[in-house]
Amino acid sequence: MKKQRAFLKWAGGKYELVDTIRRYLPEGEQLIEPFVGAGSVFLNTNFKNYILADINHDLIALFNLLKSKPDLFINDLKLLFNRQNNQAEAFYQLRDVFNGSKDQYLRSLLFVYLNRHCYNGLCRYNNSGKFNVPFGRYKTIYFPEKELYFFAEKAQNAQFICAPYQKVMKKAKQNSVIYCDPPYLSPNESAGFTAYYSNNFGFEEHKKLSQLAEKIAYKNDIPVLVSNHYTDYTKTLYNKASYLYRAEMRRSISCAGEGRKKIDEILALYKKS
């Protein structure tokens, strides 16, 4: 199966780890992802249907629009991808338009524009809910047309919802499989990348997530796979899992290319034997 890239750049995206995740994901009819992000696992698996969720309203609204109006949306989006808009002044003007707009269609177009033009493709909002990632200064910008169309086609078998993970995981029925890709704890277990959209996802939330995974798997007989950094803390955190797997993945932990190093990842599978 040829690997498909997401049309969005995404911190913590799972494109590089997809083959490993596929190997450990149990079979089922439906895949539920409470932290869908850019959707690399969704795009590279073959379940009959999907429930894909995130707490980022802009992200879910974008996915629903692309699913329902792919041709119109992609053609309108293309108009934003030109040399003139790949300049700092235009970027900050369009970022201001995004932050001031309540028009969801316009926000969705600008969300993709900002994602492809901002620094490192980060998605970050300030305490007032304003997108605040600076201009990325790329020489050229790739317009992900074929990735957009692939996503839109596959999305016909998916339901996108904006909801917290607890609510999403409770939607699982027999023949569902759950894959959780929460904002990771940092490899050195200090602050790290736990600020996700407008909520913090710290130690307490990771603990609650592991307990919910355990309950759903062992009481309801619905398998749950969770990923995170491989550390002494996460090995303890997931010690009730049926299986713990270790995988290596290149992660950007420095903005300089030479600062990028491989950090081991943990995949914890909760599954009733």
Rank of each mutant, 00 (worst) to 15 (best):
Y138W: 03
L225T: 14
E204R: 04
F201E: 04
K154A: 03
I55S: 15
K9T: 02
A11S: 11
E16L: 15
P183Y: 08
D221G: 05
S273E: 13
V168I: 15
L225Q: 11
P34G: 09
G12V: 08
F131R: 00
G12R: 09
Y105L: 08
K2I: 13
H57R: 13
A90G: 04
R22A: 14
D19W: 01
S186M: 07
N75H: 10
I141Q: 07
K215W: 01
D54Y: 03
D58V: 03
Y113W: 02
A268Q: 05
F203T: 10
L209Q: 00
V177F: 02
K173Y: 07
V18S: 15
L244R: 11
K208P: 07
L62F: 15
Q159S: 13
Y184M: 12
R116M: 07
G202H: 02
L109N: 05
L94V: 02
Y15D: 00
K261P: 02
S40P: 00
L8M: 12
F73H: 07
Q159N: 11
I32H: 09
Y119R: 12
P164M: 02
N157W: 06
I161Y: 00
L225D: 08
R116G: 07
E16I: 06
A6I: 10
K272S: 13
D103C: 11
H57P: 09
L65E: 07
F201G: 07
L31N: 14
A158I: 11
F135Q: 04
S190L: 13
N126R: 00
E89I: 12
Y105T: 08
L79V: 09
Y184R: 08
E265R: 01
Y179R: 06
Q166E: 13
K240R: 15
R83P: 10
L25E: 04
Q87A: 10
K207C: 09
Y105K: 05
S101L: 05
N86Q: 03
V41P: 04
I55V: 15
H229G: 13
K271A: 08
R124I: 03
V226G: 06
E27A: 14
C255I: 14
E205G: 10
S273W: 01
F160A: 06
F150M: 00
Y196G: 03
F35G: 12
C118G: 05
L31W: 14
I21G: 03
L59G: 10
E258D: 11
N64Y: 07
T20D: 14
L31H: 15
Q84P: 01
G100R: 10
S198C: 09
T45A: 10
G192P: 01
L52Y: 06
A268T: 05
A11V: 15
G259L: 03
K207V: 12
F91D: 09
R260K: 14
K271V: 09
K2F: 08
K171A: 06
F42N: 05
P70A: 15
I21E: 08
F143I: 02
S40K: 05
L17I: 00
A256L: 15
